Simulated assay, not measured.
Amino acid sequence: MTEPLRIAMWSGPRNLSTATMRSFGARADTSCVDEPFYAAYLSLTGLIHPMQDEIMASQPDDPKTVIEALTQGPVDTPIQYQKHMTHHMVDGIPRRWMKEVRNAFLIRHPARVLTSFAKKMDEVSLEAIGFPLQAQLFDTVCNLTGQRPLVVDSDDILAAPEDTLRKVCHGLDIPWDPQMLSWPSGPRPEDGAWAPHWYESVNASTGFAAPPGPLPDLPDALKPILDAAMPIYERLARYKV
């Protein structure tokens, strides 16, 4: 039996990550895994998140168990799409396994990330929106594989879904599938236990939202985080498809 192609898409929160998972999940040849390190991240950090009990009960919190499933576990489709949050990859979670999957990075302008994240969480920090670890993981993949991974900007997907996703498919060496442009509304079996708190908008969707408008104005309290995140975003954006 041919080994499946395992795609690890690395994103910060509020980066269009769930809609992109919906897009890949609409392919007949692809199955999806939703944020498999979430429970491990909460266990290692001691942080308390919405729906904490449900998250911890739904996933293993041992990183090695998660890694074994992601790299060697059975997959019923030719492609497995793994949706990962960059900020979950804290100290205590090994990274060498990333050499065994095909990595890609989903980025978004930090002003948009901060605006969206602040609506869902009371405490906002540079680490919580995942930018520092996204840069670290990008470098990790480069060092492990000797190649620069694919980078895609969520604004580009919204502005030109077919054109951008065609480029993504080409970069991942998979065929373009027009089914990626739409999906039925509602939840999916692969959705994480946290979906009722975070996925209201995507569950109401049947495709990608309209192109983004002007960048939002941020309150003064969030501007230092924006200033710290911008160099990371701009560095990765240089490589986007």
Rank of each mutant, 00 (worst) to 15 (best):
L5M: 09
A8I: 01
M9T: 15
W10D: 09
N15R: 12
N15F: 11
L16V: 10
L16I: 13
T18L: 04
T18P: 00
M21S: 15
R22M: 13
R27S: 08
A28S: 14
A28R: 12
T30P: 03
T30D: 01
C32A: 13
V33C: 04
D34N: 14
D34F: 12
E35Q: 12
P36A: 06
A39Y: 09
P50K: 13
D61A: 14
D61E: 10
D61Y: 11
D61R: 15
D62M: 11
P63M: 10
K64P: 00
T65S: 07
V66E: 10
V66F: 05
V66P: 04
V66C: 11
E68A: 14
E68Q: 15
E68Y: 10
L70I: 08
D76I: 07
P78W: 13
I79N: 03
I79E: 02
I79P: 03
Y81W: 15
H87G: 00
M89K: 06
D91Q: 14
G92L: 05
I93P: 02
I93T: 07
I93R: 12
P94V: 11
R95M: 12
R96K: 13
M98V: 09
E100L: 12
V101P: 04
N103C: 15
A104Q: 13
F105C: 12
L106F: 02
L106I: 10
H109E: 13
H109Y: 02
V113F: 09
V113I: 13
V113Q: 08
L114T: 11
A118P: 04
K119T: 12
K119I: 01
K120L: 15
K120G: 04
M121A: 05
E123Q: 13
A128N: 08
I129A: 05
G130S: 11
L133Q: 14
F138C: 08
D139I: 02
T140M: 11
V141I: 15
V141N: 01
N143V: 02
T145V: 08
T145D: 04
G146M: 08
G146L: 08
G146W: 08
P149A: 06
L150I: 11
S154Q: 10
S154V: 00
D156C: 06
D156F: 01
D156Q: 07
A159T: 06
P161I: 03
P161V: 01
T164W: 00
L165V: 07
V168G: 01
G171E: 09
L172M: 06
D173L: 02
D173H: 12
W176G: 07
D177K: 03
P178H: 06
L181N: 07
L181A: 00
W183E: 07
S185T: 09
P189G: 01
D191W: 12
G192Y: 07
W194D: 10
S201F: 12
N203P: 00
S205L: 14
T206P: 01
G207Q: 15
F208V: 04
A209P: 05
P212M: 10
P212N: 10
G213E: 12
P216E: 02
P216I: 08
D217E: 14
L218E: 02
P219F: 04
P219M: 06
A221M: 05
I225R: 04
L226Q: 14
L226Y: 14
D227H: 12
A229L: 03
M230D: 04
M230A: 02
I232P: 03
E234V: 05
R238G: 15
R238W: 00
Y239K: 09
